[in-house]
């Protein structure tokens, strides 16, 4: 009897320990980034482009990478939405009675979601070579769009599924066509669409492997789609590899900026989801 209780106690202790490690890892990471990055945080980081080259220059900031990342993530999310909204509607509203097929398609999107960004990057590179494009903002946007489509489709799909069937039935029974009904549904899920945008943007802004081949890198803010664009994660990666201490420090500060941006986006989307579901129930 005592042995059994001891065993129980032992494993309960292990469980609490594991929970502390899993939960604590978040604080450990964010804490490390803050601790290392905060001393190097200056206003110049946000408002200036690097002086004297990102790799060796000790002056300036990473405005080029911030703007570049916004362009890439924003462009990819918009393009992704244009493709994903119709797909999510089609899966839910035009495939009645084809449950097996629609579920199979959902699984395909789950699988696409699981494909790593380096593969999307390599494939984006193939597309660019095929069309004779160079590493550019456009190339980066294309590769990241491919990356976010599965995320957007699955998020929107989940959101549309929370719309009560009665709403659709009411619209249909009043004589609306399926497309008119879809417009009603789209209006009902507006907060969900914003959540999907946030999730996709957050994923797009943090990704390196997809833009590595496709977007290139530049010390200037891109002015057209055909210019190479710096991105924040890539800037962090390059700066960290520099032998000069100041540049490494700027890398830490850049990491801090990216962490803060992504945390804000994630928290916003979590809050929206919570509000959305509270509203539903």
């Amino acid at each position: 009897m005592r042995r059994r209780n001891l065993e129980e106690l032992f494993f309960k202790f292990l469980m609490v320990l594991a929970t502390l490690i899993v939960g604590g890892s978040f604080f450990l990471i964010v804490g490390t980034i803050f601790y290392k990055g905060a001393p190097y945080m200056t206003f110049d980081m946000l408002t200036k482009t690097p002086g004297g080259g990102f790799y060796i220059g000790k002056e300036g900031g990473i405005l080029n990478a911030i703007i570049g990342s916004m362009y890439v993530a924003g462009g990819a999310t918009i393009l992704g939405l244009i493709i994903s909204i119709p797909v999510a509607i089609y899966l839910n509203m035009y495939m009645d009675g084809k449950k097996f097929l629609s579920n199979t398609l959902r699984m395909v999107f789950d699988v696409l979601f699981g494909i790593p960004s380096i593969v999307y990057g390599a494939f984006g590179f193939l597309i660019m070579v095929y069309f004779g494009l160079r590493a550019s903002l456009l190339g980066g946007i294309i590769a990241v769009t491919l990356l976010v489509i599965p995320i957007l489709v699955r998020t929107l799909d989940e959101v549309i599924r929370t719309v009560p069937l009665e709403l659709r039935d009411a619209a249909l029974s009043l004589g609306s066509t399926r497309w008119e009904t879809a417009k009603v549904v789209l209006r009902a899920i507006r907060p969900g669409i914003i959540t999907a945008i946030l999730i996709s943007f957050g994923r797009a802004i943090g990704d390196v492997a997809a833009v590595l081949f496709t977007a290139g890198f530049s010390d200037n803010i891109p002015t057209s789609l055909h210019e190479p664009a710096a991105t924040l994660p890539l800037a962090i990666f390059f700066q960290l590899g520099s032998p000069i201490e100041e540049v490494q420090g700027r890398g830490y500060a850049s990491a801090l900026i990216l962490t803060i941006v992504v945390l804000i986006i994630t928290i916003l989307s979590e809050l929206l989801v919570k509000k959305f579901y509270k509203h539903k129930s």
Partner: peptide, 12 residues
């Protein structure tokens, strides 16, 4: 917090 952890970019 687990969700926040999943949102942190790989480079971080």
């Amino acid at each position: 917090f687990v969700n926040l952890l999943s949102g942190i970019p790989p480079v971080i």
